[in-house]
C-alpha cells in the first residue's frame, strides 16, 4: 500500500497553505535544476535540509527516501569522470578520470539531493488528495486533477486485483520460469488487469452519473489563511532571489 508517512504532522510546514508549498517547491526545483555554480547548489542543499528540519520529519526516513536516487548517482559517478574529456585528475592503468566529469557528477548529485529533499519537506507533507485540491485551486486543468485523484484512489483496487489474480495462478501450481508458458501467463495477467481496470472505470463513471455527475467536479477543500504563509513566502522568495543573483549576476 502506498503509505504517506510524512503527510500528517503538526509542524510549521504542515500548517502552511498547500498552494504556497506547491508553488515554492516548483520554482525552487526549476532554479536548482538550471543553476551551475557550486556555491548556489551547496546553499540550495542547505535550504532543503533546513526545510526538512522545519517540517520536523524523521531524518532516517527522509534519508531512506532520498537514497532512492543513490543507485542512479553511483552509475553517474562511475561513468561521467571516465568519459568526459578534459584535465585528468587521476589514473589507474588505462582508466583516466577527468575533472569536468567529476564536476558534472558532483553537480547532478547536489541538484538531486536539493530537489528531492525540498519536495520531501514541502510536498510529501501533504496527502495526495490535498495536493489534488490545491492544484485545482491553482487553476490546473480539472481533467489532470481527476486523473491524479482517481489514480490515487484506484491504484489500490487494481493492486488488490493483481494480488488476487497472482494468487489464483500460484494456487494452481504456477511457478515463473524462463519459458514461453510463463511469458504468456504473465501477458494474460497484465491483459486481464487492463480489462478489469477499464471495466472498473466504466462502473465508477456510471455510479458517478447516478449521483448527478455531469462532468464538473466540485471540491470541498478550503485552505485557512494563516500568518505563517506570508512569512514563509517572503523568506523563500528572497532566498531564491538571492540564489538567482549569486548564479547569474555575481
Amino acid at each position: 500500500m502506498l503509505a504517506e508517512p510524512f503527510a500528517h504532522g503538526q509542524s510549521f510546514v504542515h500548517g502552511l497553505d498547500p498552494r504556497v508549498r506547491i508553488a515554492t517547491s516548483t520554482v525552487f526545483s526549476c532554479l536548482v535544476a538550471v543553476a551551475n555554480s557550486f556555491t548556489v547548489l551547496v546553499i540550495a542543499c542547505m535550504i532543503s535540509l533546513g526545510l526538512v528540519l522545519l517540517a520536523r520529519l524523521d531524518l532516517a526516513a527522509v534519508g531512506r527516501r532520498v537514497s532512492v536516487v543513490f543507485g542512479f548517482l553511483i552509475l553517474l559517478w562511475l561513468i561521467l569522470p571516465l568519459t568526459y574529456e578534459g584535465e585528468p585528475v587521476g589514473q589507474w592503468g588505462p582508466l583516466v578520470w577527468h575533472r569536468p566529469g567529476v564536476a558534472l557528477a558532483a553537480r547532478i548529485s547536489l541538484k538531486s539531493f536539493a530537489i528531492l529533499a525540498a519536495f520531501t519537506a514541502l510536498l510529501a507533507t501533504m496527502a495526495v488528495s490535498t495536493m489534488g485540491h490545491a492544484l485545482d485551486r491553482m487553476g490546473l486543468p480539472s481533467k489532470l486533477i481527476h486523473l491524479l485523484l482517481m489514480c490515487y484512489r484506484y491504484i489500490f483496487v487494481i493492486e488488490q486485483e493483481y494480488r488476487r489474480l497472482n494468487a489464483a495462478m500460484r494456487i494452481r501450481a504456477f511457478r515463473p520460469r524462463t519459458n514461453l508458458h510463463t511469458y504468456r501467463s504473465y501477458a494474460y495477467l497484465v491483459g486481464m488487469l487492463f480489462v478489469r481496470a477499464a471495466a472498473r472505470a466504466e462502473r465508477v463513471h456510471q455510479a458517478m452519473r447516478c449521483r448527478g455527475f455531469q462532468g464538473r467536479f466540485h471540491t470541498m477543500a478550503q485552505f485557512p489563511r494563516q500568518a505563517g504563509n506570508r512569512l514563509f513566502l517572503v523568506a523563500t522568495t528572497s532566498a531564491m532571489l538571492g540564489l538567482a543573483w549569486l548564479e547569474w549576476l555575481q
Binding site: 496527502a127 495526495v128 488528495s129 489534488g132 485523484l149 482517481m150 490515487y152 484512489r153 484506484y154 483496487v157 472498473r200 462502473r203 465508477v204 456510471q206 455510479a207 458517478m208 447516478c210 449521483r211 448527478g212 455527475f213 455531469q214 466540485h218 471540491t219 470541498m220
Partner: peptide
C-alpha cells in the same frame, strides 16, 4: 451499486458523501 469500490471514488468519506449534494 453491487461493488462499493465502484461507488466510493473520493479520497475521504466526507467528500464522497458530499459529491451528490454538490452536483445538485
Amino acid at each position: 451499486f453491487q461493488d462499493a469500490d465502484d461507488q466510493l471514488f473520493s479520497p475521504t468519506v466526507l467528500e464522497d458523501v458530499a459529491f451528490g449534494p454538490l452536483n445538485l
